[in-house]
């Protein structure tokens, strides 16, 4: 096993651990918003790890894997944002332990205008 294979394998392994973490977050968190928080972050980092890892493991794939990783890095937060905004606007309440909600007031102002 050469040195870049070792680094690549390490990144891939770490990435897949974060995938498991993101699905655990999906299961354990109490409401839509917190699930999205935990799941999106770790799934994006995990994809980054797996793709860069694959690129380092076999250098021929590196540029294309990098393009896919960058694409995911740009699109994953956008889709998470779109989903969370849709969730709020379609009337899903925050978790009962939430302490502050400034967005509600902003939406109310928008409705009055």
């Amino acid at each position: 096993m050469t040195i870049n294979e070792a680094i690549g394998a390490f990144l891939i392994f770490t990435g897949s651990l974060f995938y498991v973490l993101s699905s655990l977050g999906l299961i354990r968190m109490p409401d839509v918003y917190n699930r999205m928080q935990t799941a999106t972050k770790s799934a994006t980092l995990a994809s980054l790890g797996v793709m860069i890892g694959v690129g380092i493991y076999s250098p021929c794939c590196f540029p294309k894997a990098l393009v896919i990783a960058l694409f995911l890095l740009l699109t994953n937060p956008i889709s998470a944002h779109a989903l969370i905004r849709a969730a709020y606007r379609s009337g899903i309440p925050l978790w009962e332990g939430s302490i502050v909600d400034k967005y509600k007031e902003a939406l109310k102002e928008e409705g009055e205008q």
Binding site: I12, G15, S16, Y19, S22, S23, L26, V32, R35, M36, A39, T40, A43, T44, A46, S47, V50, M51, V54, Y57, S58, C61, A65, I68, L72, N76, S79, A80, L83, A86, A87, S90, I92
Partner: peptide
């Protein structure tokens, strides 16, 4: 329990699947 929950789960699953495809390429 809500639709958004299911869609979030599907979103995460598609991200995972993309990673899986890249790993299969290797």
């Amino acid at each position: 329990p809500t639709t958004v929950d299911r869609i979030i789960a599907i979103d995460i699953m598609t991200t995972i699947t993309t990673g899986l495809m890249v790993l299969f390429a290797l």
